Simulated assay, not measured.
Amino acid sequence: MTRSVSQTSDPRCFLRFIGGILLVTTALTASGCKPNESPLKDENERLRKQVTKQESVLISLQDGNKVMQQQIDLLNRELRDAKKETERAEAERRAMAAMLGAKVEENKKLSAEVQRAALTKAQASQSLRVEDKGGQSADLPRPLTAVFKAAEEALTRNGYTVRVGVKTDQKAVYVTERKTSSPPSLEVPGFRNQYLLSLQALPPNGTRLSIKAEFEKMAQGGRVLPAGPEEKAEIERRLINEISKALEVPNKL
């Protein structure tokens, strides 16, 4: 009985052994026929990394182009602004040049007028010959400017118009128009008079006032009556007193 069991179990073990060998052989055969995918995966990974790197470089270049374009736009805008500013400055320069040219011409005209006025004044000053002989003089303790202003006011107040007036820093000369007063009656004569005033600055702050009157008495019918030296002197002293009174007014320079 034992022997038959042993014979019966041996084929099973053999089959199991053969089956195991076949399974191992099949597995080995299958594993030997399947291709190795590891190099392809590595190559794909390497290519993927290169693509990613290239995309990053491309993005960086695009960003750089944007920044560069922004800088170009900014430079173009600055150039346009600079051009406008240059054009505005050029327009202002042309306007200023035109204004300066007009001012130069105006100054030339004014200079010519001043020279003509100075020449006329010099000629008038040279043509005047002040004769103090026979006139009345007084030294006043006031500056020249104050005295000739007071003289002008006194002459105007008494009805005398200045015919010629020449003023410098040190001297002033006035010649009045001839004033005529008709005789009111046969007994009372009229007069005809003209004043010559000379003002000379004195140190330190005074003025010498000299007055000469060409005084004549007039009878009816236009007849000229002689006037004595004392009458002329009185007329001259009267104007000196009028000027002195004008200087006494407050705030009179």
Rank of each mutant, 00 (worst) to 15 (best):
T2Y: 15
S4E: 12
Q7C: 13
R12V: 10
L15V: 14
R16P: 03
R16W: 05
F17S: 15
I18E: 12
G20Q: 07
V24Q: 11
T25L: 04
A27N: 05
A27V: 10
A30L: 03
G32W: 02
G32H: 14
K34M: 15
N36W: 08
S38N: 10
S38W: 02
E43Q: 15
Q50G: 14
Q50N: 12
E55R: 08
S56K: 02
V57F: 14
L58N: 11
S60E: 15
L61Q: 09
G64P: 02
D73I: 03
N76R: 01
R77T: 11
E78L: 13
D81R: 06
K83E: 11
K84V: 10
A89I: 14
A89W: 03
R94M: 09
A97R: 13
L100S: 05
K103D: 13
V104G: 09
E105C: 11
K108L: 11
L110C: 03
A112T: 15
A112N: 12
A118Q: 14
T120D: 07
A124Y: 07
A124N: 06
L128E: 09
K133S: 08
K133I: 12
G134L: 03
G134R: 02
L140M: 11
P143W: 02
P143E: 00
L144Q: 00
L144C: 08
F148A: 03
K149D: 14
A150S: 00
E152T: 09
T156M: 07
T156C: 06
N158P: 05
V162I: 05
G165Q: 02
K167Q: 13
K167A: 06
T168W: 00
Q170V: 03
A172P: 01
V173F: 03
Y174N: 09
E177Q: 03
E177L: 08
K179V: 13
T180P: 05
S182G: 01
P184T: 12
S185M: 02
V188Y: 04
V188D: 02
P189H: 05
L202D: 09
G206C: 07
I211N: 01
K212H: 10
K212P: 06
K212S: 14
F215C: 03
F215Q: 02
F215A: 15
K217F: 07
K217V: 00
M218S: 08
V224R: 06
V224S: 03
V224C: 08
P229G: 00
E230K: 05
E231A: 14
E231Q: 06
A233Q: 09
A233T: 04
E236G: 07
N241M: 12
S244N: 10
S244C: 04
S244I: 00
A246I: 05
